[in-house]
């Protein structure tokens, strides 16, 4: 007699916890042969709202954490993902990827997380400047996290695409609310479990499953969300998102659909796009030299 398999319930990830959608709705996910593989939460506006509240609450301490520590935590995500490599490959296959592509996707994702882990305490130095102003002031510009970021994960490239948008955002000190790919949501939920077990504080990453149609508007129009990023979004949704984003002058970053497996899709600008530049001035006494005096 074969053992009955224990099926996994795919839930949301909000504030470090795994609730079901408050709406109680779900959608059935089918494999390539049409067999139902899972019921996935169909998140509502209220779930989006709860996720934003959690992300805002987590923002202060995450953005003020030492850069080195953020780097360690992001690296820990890579370690945990590597440890669950086979689970992710299986899940990706379930969703229709070939074994070879699934393995490539997971490996590339791990490598990408390691790549951004290394950036955590370096981008500041590249993006900052000491500015030679003409008056007796010391003037410097530093990069700071933009705040709460809504991420619309690419529809394709279920794991790597998500990782490619998510990781640079949190590496840069932002907290995020992710709308997972509607078509490939399973690896997003499993990634949440990885993140949960990686010392990432609750609320830094929040992941919702459901439809972009339903979830983009509450995020894009939310006055406590500071930026939206997306890749390969349909023209209609993108346009609507930009219009709604104007309500609080959100930063809107749109990447075209791209092959995320290319190394050229990772880089400093993915972090830079979700940074603010703050410039500080302070007077300097006796700028004319040590011997000058009043």
């Amino acid at each position: 007699m074969t053992r009955l398999q224990v099926l996994k319930t795919y839930k949301l990830f909000i504030g470090g916890q795994f609730p079901r959608t408050e709406s109680g709705r779900y959608y059935a996910l089918h494999g390539k042969d049409g067999i139902a593989i899972a019921n996935v939460c169909l998140s509502s506006r209220k779930d989006a709202r709860n996720a934003v509240v959690a992300a805002r609450k987590a923002f202060g301490s995450w953005s003020e954490r030492s850069a080195f520590n953020r780097g360690q935590i992001v690296y820990r995500i890579a370690e945990m993902l590597e440890g669950r490599r086979s689970q992710f490959i299986e899940e990706l296959q379930l969703m229709g990827l070939t074994a070879a592509n699934a393995a490539k996707e997971v490996d590339a994702s791990v490598d990408r997380i390691v790549y951004y882990a290394g950036w955590c305490d370096k981008y500041q130095q590249i993006l900052s400047a000491v500015n030679p102003v003409a008056s007796s002031h010391f003037n410097f510009s530093v990069a700071e996290a933009t705040g709460v970021v809504g991420i619309i994960a690419p529809e394709e490239s279920p794991l790597l695409g998500l990782v490619s948008l998510l990781i640079p955002a949190i590496a840069g000190g932002n907290t995020v609310v992710v709308i997972a790919s509607e078509k490939y949501p399973l690896s997003a939920v499993t990634l949440a479990e990885v993140i949960h077990s990686s010392d990432v504080p609750g609320g830094v990453v929040n992941i919702l499953t459901g439809t972009a149609d339903e979830l983009v508007p509450p995020l894009a129009s939310h006055l406590d969300v500071n930026a939206m990023t997306s890749s390969g979004l349909s023209a209609d949704i993108a346009r609507a998102m930009q219009v709604q984003a104007a309500d609080n002058v959100k930063r809107v970053v749109r990447y075209s659909a791209m092959d995320w497996s290319k190394p050229s899709t990772q880089g400093l600008s993915m972090i830079e796009d979700l940074q603010e530049i703050k410039t500080t001035w302070h007077p300097i006494e006796n700028i004319g030299g040590a011997t000058s005096s009043y």
Partner: peptide, 8 residues
């Protein structure tokens, strides 16, 4: 204070 070298 403003200066061409200082981002604003």
């Amino acid at each position: 204070k403003f200066d061409p070298a200082s981002p604003f």
